[in-house]
Simulated scan of single mutants.
Amino acid sequence: MSNTLLRVALLLALPALANAASQPLPLPDRDTAAPAVATPVTAPAIPTTRAALDPAQLQELRRRYAAWQGLPAAERARIRDAAQRMAALPPAQQQALRARFDAQDQRFRDGWLLGPQLGQAFPKLQGLFGYLPAEQREPALAILRQLSLDQLAQLSLVAQRTPPQERDQVRSQFLALAPGARDAWLKQNVGH
């Protein structure tokens, strides 16, 4: 497979791979192992040329590629590892994981384009960070990527407890904080 086609395949599978990266893969017991003959599972065909894509598909690939390029190197490495683990699974298990991911709400799936760490936290951060003005998107993502897992968990609580009419104010306060002031702000706002 050419390098371009490999990239396109990875971009098409990025949300499912990110989801797989955050969850342990269930290993079958020896007693319940799959039969020796597995039913073949066909993946959706990946167009081999740009001309074979309709405009919506091309726009979606560009969006996913931009998301991939925006991820820190460590997050991309986690996704590559997840892709390798997923590729090693039996086809039926791969299909089941994809189906489980595809059954989720679109907003949930789109959150995984932010990478494994933010993708896992995004459903709870959605209310506070899901609908940002364009000028706040990149700075907000940069700040969110700097947060530890504990800080993301605390911010998730703040996001869930913030009434819709106060979200803009709370988000602006948080984004204006110096890195050293975030812990104290989070503790103060989680305590409410």
Results as ranks from 00 to 15, higher is better:
1 M>R: 10
2 S>P: 13
2 S>G: 13
3 N>W: 09
6 L>E: 14
7 R>Y: 07
8 V>R: 15
9 A>L: 11
9 A>K: 11
10 L>F: 02
12 L>R: 14
13 A>W: 00
14 L>S: 04
17 L>A: 04
21 A>Y: 04
22 S>V: 15
23 Q>L: 08
25 L>N: 10
26 P>G: 06
28 P>H: 11
28 P>V: 09
28 P>L: 14
29 D>M: 07
29 D>I: 01
30 R>V: 08
33 A>Y: 12
33 A>D: 11
33 A>H: 14
34 A>F: 05
34 A>S: 09
35 P>F: 06
36 A>S: 05
37 V>R: 14
38 A>P: 01
38 A>R: 11
39 T>Y: 00
40 P>Y: 02
42 T>I: 07
45 A>F: 02
45 A>D: 07
47 P>A: 13
48 T>G: 14
49 T>L: 06
50 R>L: 12
50 R>Q: 11
51 A>G: 04
54 D>I: 06
56 A>T: 15
57 Q>R: 05
58 L>S: 15
61 L>M: 09
61 L>G: 00
62 R>E: 15
63 R>F: 10
66 A>W: 01
66 A>M: 02
67 A>K: 02
71 L>A: 06
72 P>A: 10
74 A>N: 12
74 A>Q: 12
76 R>E: 05
76 R>H: 04
77 A>K: 08
79 I>Y: 05
80 R>G: 10
80 R>D: 15
81 D>C: 09
81 D>L: 14
82 A>E: 02
83 A>V: 13
84 Q>S: 14
84 Q>W: 07
85 R>A: 13
85 R>C: 07
85 R>K: 12
86 M>W: 15
91 P>D: 04
92 A>N: 10
94 Q>V: 03
95 Q>D: 14
96 A>P: 00
97 L>M: 15
104 Q>I: 07
105 D>Y: 04
105 D>M: 04
106 Q>C: 08
106 Q>A: 15
109 R>Q: 15
110 D>R: 12
112 W>V: 01
112 W>D: 02
113 L>K: 00
115 G>D: 03
115 G>W: 04
115 G>C: 00
116 P>H: 10
116 P>T: 09
116 P>E: 08
116 P>N: 05
123 P>L: 02
125 L>M: 01
130 G>A: 04
132 L>Y: 06
134 A>F: 10
134 A>R: 13
136 Q>W: 03
139 P>T: 00
139 P>L: 03
140 A>N: 03
141 L>Q: 12
141 L>F: 11
141 L>Y: 11
141 L>V: 10
142 A>L: 04
143 I>K: 15
149 L>S: 12
149 L>G: 10
154 Q>S: 11
158 V>G: 08
158 V>A: 06
159 A>D: 00
159 A>F: 00
160 Q>W: 07
160 Q>V: 02
160 Q>D: 09
161 R>D: 14
163 P>D: 15
165 Q>M: 06
167 R>D: 06
168 D>L: 12
168 D>G: 13
170 V>M: 05
172 S>D: 15
178 A>Y: 04
180 G>Q: 03
180 G>M: 01
181 A>M: 08
181 A>W: 09
182 R>F: 10
184 A>P: 06
188 Q>W: 02
189 N>R: 07
